[in-house]
Nucleic acid binder design. Sequence first.
DNA 1: TGGAGCATGTAATGAGTTACATGATTGG
DNA 2: CCAATCATGTAACTCATTACATGCTCCA
Lengths: 189, 189
Amino acid sequence: MGTTINATAASLLGFLHDAPLTGYALSQVAEEALGNFWSITRSQVYRELSRMADVGLVRPSGEPGPRDRQPYELTDAGRQAFAAWAADTPNAETIRFPLLLVLSLGRHVDDDVLGDHLRTHRAEHARRLAEYDSIWEQLPDDVTAEGVDRWRVATLAFGRRYEQAVLGWFDELPDLLGIQPTNNAESTL
Amino acid sequence: MGTTINATAASLLGFLHDAPLTGYALSQVAEEALGNFWSITRSQVYRELSRMADVGLVRPSGEPGPRDRQPYELTDAGRQAFAAWAADTPNAETIRFPLLLVLSLGRHVDDDVLGDHLRTHRAEHARRLAEYDSIWEQLPDDVTAEGVDRWRVATLAFGRRYEQAVLGWFDELPDLLGIQPTNNAESTL
DNA sequence: TGGAGCATGTAATGAGTTACATGATTGG
DNA sequence: CCAATCATGTAACTCATTACATGCTCCA
């Protein structure tokens, strides 16, 4: 019976397929690979790493560096555990959207307060979309070409769709709520 | 200094604005009001409820029923704590999307396995969108009319935008990944 | 050469999920 | 009236976040 692991641990195993990495490095890779749609903190990384070392899914690789800096590498069991995890159909996503929560309780909240929140959040989402777009534009025209990481492109595409949807929603809100347009639509660009 | 509360507790206070409710009832209201974008389990409800009772944000109201069934009502401090929470600008949403995680590690995952996952998830999202749409269509034409809960409309609108975006993404994936279209697009309807 | 700021890890706390226990209800 | 099912609550566990501690590095 192979060891069962959670998604967080699995992601680490995934990253270790390419090269041995230390905990700190792993947390950076994770951040940059998935940032907004699967965040992992350093604490989690170290916890999962040491658990996995205990059950033999990873093992120390090479010299410890300064501090307790220690690269880990995949074991065969680790590779197997990763494959098993990947084969399992992934759970549905969970979304926790505090703004939506406040909004749904809107009848007990001051209108101005809500308006503020909406403006702030809209701006933030516009920022993110702009960020994704600028990465997108630096991709080669043929996105299926050699040397392009298709998987990164796919997740980036999700990010753009998501942010576009959210912005569209912000902009239809005034109509739905029957209130003044509070969105600073010009800040989209 | 008013007591600081978290979003989960705050949502309960929100629901209690309308009427006293028991823990079980609260968990049902929460589920139906926000389901997919802010889920709360019964365990959380009871925990927050008893914490809040301890610090005087809610208090037992009326007779305990069979079992330990006990309705709670808002206190003034509770009302205040809610308002304070609502006034604070809400945190950014967090999204944990296991499918996206697998996909981003796609280069270490079998193509067929990925294809399966994509198909399964696409179907589920199509189902959800259909569900939202059918609720949407039962709304009166003038959504700002009396008797319509604007706040519910607003969150529902978000749900639709979100699911539309996700489906759009699924359908562009084959192009991006340069693989066979695995999406059963006809199951959209 | 020392101290400001970054790198790296750990510990404490809080939030969320799963599994369980037992009381109520109701159709056969 | 009993067995199946639903209602209601609790406890144990896992996961995630925040706050903290201390080691390194580098340039003024």
